[in-house]
Design a protein around this nucleic acid. Sequence first.
DNA 1: TTTAAAAAATGATATAACAATTAGAACACT
DNA 2: AGTGTTCTAATTGTTATATCATTTTTTAAA
Lengths: 252, 252
Amino acid sequence: MGNTELKKTNQSWAPVRANSVANQIVMQVREALFSGKFQPGDSLGSEKDLAAQFDVSRITVRDALRTLETMGIVEIRVGAGGGARIAESNLDYFSDALAVQFILAGVTKSEILDMQVAIEGTGAELAALHRSSENLEELAELLDDAETVIDSPAEFTEAGQRFHLAVVEASGNRALIAQFRALRYVVWPQNAQRAKREIAENAQKIHHQLYNLIKAQNGNAARKLMIDHLFSIRAVSFSGTAEDAANGMICC
Amino acid sequence: MGNTELKKTNQSWAPVRANSVANQIVMQVREALFSGKFQPGDSLGSEKDLAAQFDVSRITVRDALRTLETMGIVEIRVGAGGGARIAESNLDYFSDALAVQFILAGVTKSEILDMQVAIEGTGAELAALHRSSENLEELAELLDDAETVIDSPAEFTEAGQRFHLAVVEASGNRALIAQFRALRYVVWPQNAQRAKREIAENAQKIHHQLYNLIKAQNGNAARKLMIDHLFSIRAVSFSGTAEDAANGMICC
DNA sequence: TTTAAAAAATGATATAACAATTAGAACACT
DNA sequence: AGTGTTCTAATTGTTATATCATTTTTTAAA
């Protein structure tokens, strides 16, 4: 296999074992993707094809494919007509990578909540600026849905979370959406799903205000309200009082 | 809430191939990590050990290890006393995953810049609130460094980028830092590294103001200044005039 | 104590084989 | 013509057995 020299960046990539043949194949495919040579859906051929193409054994190709697959760069199908092809974007891979690194790094709840403020604050602001009529319809529907389950803490929490997602989605910014989904993946399991009706009603009220600000395209106010909203959740989440603990976090 | 039909998205993790033996091993290790059973540094044993432990062939273990390695969950060392162990947090894996998904999803420059505003704006705000004296020293040093290379566009751009990184690092929020580094990885290659001295001087001036606001713990003003700064960069970056294109983007 | 050679452990690669899965073609039967 | 079924070929998943290359540890010598 010729072209094995990797580009400038990425000194970080494990100095050890970096030049195994399998990794060279990974790098070549990766660079080809980054340089626009590949589009999602493009076929790379079967393991046998690739083994012949790179003049290596099937196992070496397998190692490379397993890495590329985990990176989310290729998807592999078994059976006739199968093989490896360039994958569609799948943010789950990314969310998962983020969650893993947060755990390994021991990132705290407080840090993640600050991150949430950054993402959702900007999300709300951009949602107000860019929302489509379809976005508004969806947000209104989600508000109605939440209303019907306001007495069921777990369901209301879930409905509220969907509302928050819809707000970020209304921003039209896929980078923000990706980050939000990643954070959600990290944060949600920690959320207590119990809350008093009083708290639920307050969350619902704020969500309505948020909807109105987004509808009115008032980005700055939407951002501020979202941030206040998140901070109040944080306050509940971090206050250690017995009652608050019992109330739990609502919606997010 | 009745509405159980999930939205279009998220058939996600390929139903096919999900229960291969190799994937089961991956899942087991993953779950163990998420449940706190493993800490960075813990040894998993060699390929041979794991093959015996799971009663599978070495190649199957290899497949699983390659996946876990790419996920950043384990690191593998050769030689006596080597084998697989739980990795330390390495945000490069995550940054890379993000970059890959942005490319596959075709995320635009505009979307990424909005994301930058969210991250760096919050980063500057939190830096002002949480900065240590060491942070201030480093920021001051970086300002001096940039001053000495103000006539060398490429070097000044790099120095400016280091300043921006230091600001986010001063926030003390590892989640933000991770996101910033990920974005940097995506954005930097696009940055033109040429600029007129006039532009460099302006950037340097703003960086000084930013430093002062962080020193004064004025979070709100720091955030606003950072955002203005980024928007002015965006303006240059997106204006298509010949002169601006020649001037390029400065610092970030 | 330092250095260098030897040995052991381990991953990297290759070859061969079989099982399980899938797509598509061929075929039979309405 | 259309529909369902069966066969076939292609392809990944898995196992087994070797051999090679690299790294680390151990041992011996200077």
